[in-house]
Write a protein that binds this DNA or RNA. Structure first.
Lengths: 99, 99
DNA sequence: TCTACTAGCTTTGCATCACAAAGTGCTCTG
DNA sequence: CAGAGCACTTTGTGATGCAAAGCTAGTAGA
């Protein structure tokens, strides 16, 4: 008997990735440093989680120069947004105890 | 700058433990086998997660005999319920993007 | 040109964790 | 006595989280 918990997306089962997605749902594009400060993470830590989300096709990476400085921004893909929504509704269903 | 994600309870940051707590919030007492079937887990897997929650003081273990068969039931402690509620509200705040 | 600095990673290393499968000890049933 | 059910515990393997250090490319200052 398959339970709801098995439908939760493994890509989001981590607090940092939840935070990243939450920020990216609320803001169109967010820079590396803004994300890092917003979530209070070390850069390596953030980089690894973001790259995991990128590999999953859930975030889009945009490397460019702003003035003379490199600037990488991230945004959620359409897939990412809907997968995240699905994850949230599954979570809610699970937590409201209504199978 | 501390972010909400750092206030999420580590004891609950796993899908199985979320499921266990959700079931225990909805039902006063649940037996080992019922939990195992409800969540579709192997017994070893369930046992380890439940014992983690027990060590955290979030679930209460009740060993007894029903007729002649051993029967272990679990229930959420008061601490467990309130910690879980806190976790959920933190989650919601995080996901609704309203700091 | 030498040095320092920033942004954004990648690598390393360690500790933790999830999970399945197998094993254990107990009791009851046939 | 054999077998089965309950509730674990142990074992083993592979994935994960995380911090810290290292690295690279470009820029700015002296």
């Amino acid at each position: 008997m398959k339970h709801l918990i098995h439908t939760l997306n493994k890509a989001f089962d981590n607090r940092v990735r939840l935070g990243v997605m939450a920020v990216l749902m609320a803001n169109e594009a967010v820079s590396f440093n803004d994300l890092k400060e917003a979530l209070d993470l070390t850069d390596g830590n953030l980089a690894s989680h973001v790259s995991a989300l990128e590999k999953a096709g859930y975030v889009l990476v945009n490397k460019q120069f702003v003035g003379k400085k490199p600037n990488t921004t991230y945004q959620a893909t359409k897939e990412g947004k809907s997968a995240f929504q699905d994850h949230l509704t599954a979570l809610e269903k699970l937590l409201r105890g209504s199978p």
